[in-house]
Design a protein around this nucleic acid. Structure first.
Lengths: 303, 303
DNA sequence: CTTTGTTACGGCAGCCGTAAATATA
DNA sequence: TATATTTACGGCTGCCGTAACAAAG
């Protein structure tokens, strides 16, 4: 079977118009008709039904079944082309979320530079969820990623690095700041929250805690920026949830509170690449060095 | 590009022998050489290197990259063929794990019979992990599945039905049976455990609890059979973990103990099918009826 | 008469087989 | 000389384009 026929068919399902498909591929229109006939013969099943009375082309159930598979096939072909084209490139398409970039990545920068790897990195700086998409479509080949739940998708090869706890962060002005011992999350039911937008995993974490303790948090503000997030909390607009390490002694007027009964979900850090991607020697070395990042494990990591 | 060439290539990578590949497909041997050349031209990259000195054919990195994609492409084509071939079949390829089959499925059997669906079911009775594999390769189209962690694989469409708690189960002879209130899992550190083999999710659950409370359980016995599992516990060979509902008042000499601080992981029950599978009207109806199974939610379900 | 898709047919390219060539042991 | 792969070449098949046809508004 010809993958070109599958491409024609895929676009036909999306456009429902033979003529447009032909124009899109710069071929004559009967070519599309014939391609569909070939596929129908190959699969021994009608795929498209042209209803001339109601002026529309309908796709049969078999057609949709094939359509779904065609999409995956096309994605894989595109990925193969992209990967093979970049086979001789020196650049390493690397994804790194901002928080990990500032908190843990500096530990290994020197080692990477020594191995002449640092200058080869083509870094995409995005949130973990976006990085997984970039991994999918081949814009990124290797990424360090933070997730609350383990990455179960068998498409990815995951090397677990470690877990860090989340903590509650409050303004020094907030009465909670006086607390000397870990706080019970249930006691935060009446508080207002400042929240990081969902490109960070933190919003998910807040949601999970609130779900578990069965209350709806009152959100004072959503922000996509960590320093703004801290400022808002410093001004006591609300309290927040943040990876413990992100709150340092230099963050004046901010107080970090440990959580007394933490859920077994934390900021799990992993190195991820597509299983179907064969690492170049340099890339393997990068992964090996990344694995040397010392991320003290906290109890409750998922792995 | 021709998918036949990809098939030739895929087998060549696995066999490393042009002649054998040719025989396997009943074509002449030069056909294989030419197919590889075509692919190399298409991807503008050397895929196979024949080392005549050391008598072996080596696959280049580009070759392996293409190989990985070829496998996925082949799987999808096979799936499409299988699904389209079965498009007119009345049978519904349905997967049901034994525990769910006895505990919750009976609730809807009558409704299914009324809708003339029950007799159409082609039931595969296996553990949840096996059923996910069967779903993958198209032997099963719809399955009810129990998992501890949510099914994150985007390949699957998951309809969550509900969660049931796990509990500790002990012999009436065991001193723990006297306990009148929920038990703290940490106190079970010194106990011996009887364990269900890993076709059940229970072994995973035990592992998670022990990981969380940081101890290594002493395993007295592993068994793949639930009634045997109960017998062993009844004889006080050890204690065990089991879905609460599976312990009924008719189970003489067995005592069920609730867990005082349950992990937010339970016996989560879902209806699952491949996203790329378009349900037939009957199958959609089956799913709708399955969703009517009344599974009282326990706090701590993942969804 | 216009729009959209199908059928018919001829040309060229691409896939396969046979036979010969090449490269090792 | 035996084994494994590549090259060369002829034939058939299959894909595409042009042109004519069909079915609607």
């Amino acid at each position: 079977m010809n993958t070109r026929d599958l491409s024609y068919f895929r676009i036909l399902v999306e456009k429902r118009n033979y003529t447009e498909v032909a124009e899109m591929f710069s071929v004559s229109q009967p070519t599309i008709t014939q391609a569909v006939k070939r596929l129908e013969k190959e699969f021994n099943s009608k795929l498209v039904h042209v209803d001339r009375v109601h002026q529309k082309t309908e796709i049969t159930r078999s057609g949709y079944l094939l359509y779904e598979k065609s999409k995956v096939i096309q994605e894989n072909l595109d990925l193969a082309r992209k990967e093979i084209k970049a086979a001789d490139s020196q650049k390493i398409k690397f994804g790194l979320p901002p928080i990990i970039g500032t908190l843990y990545f500096p530990q290994v920068v020197q080692k990477l530079a020594q191995a002449s790897l640092f200058q080869r990195l083509n870094i995409s700086e995005s949130g973990s969820s976006e990085l997984l998409e970039e991994l999918d479509n081949g814009n990124v080949d290797i990424a360090v990623i933070a997730t609350i739940k383990p990455i179960e998708n068998p498409k990815y090869q995951v090397e677990y690095l470690g877990s860090r706890p989340f903590s509650v962060i409050v303004s020094a002005k907030n009465p909670l700041a006086q607390s000397t011992e870990p706080i019970d999350f249930r006691k935060l039911m009446k508080e207002k929250f400042v929240r990081l937008t969902d490109k960070y995993v933190h919003s998910q974490m807040l949601e999970d805690y609130c779900n578990y303790y069965e209350f709806e948090p009152e959100i004072a503000y959503d922000t996509p920026d960590i320093s703004w997030f801290k400022s808002l909390i410093r001004a006591n607009v609300g309290i927040g949830i943040l990876v413990a390490d992100e709150v340092s002694p230099y963050d004046q007027d901010l107080v970090r509170l440990d959580i007394a009964n933490p859920l077994p979900e934390s900021f799990n850090i992993s190195v991820v690449h597509r299983k179907s991607y064969i690492l170049k020697p340099d890339e393997q070395k990068l992964v090996d060095i990344l694995k040397q990042m010392n991320i003290k494990n906290t109890k409750g990591g998922y792995y």
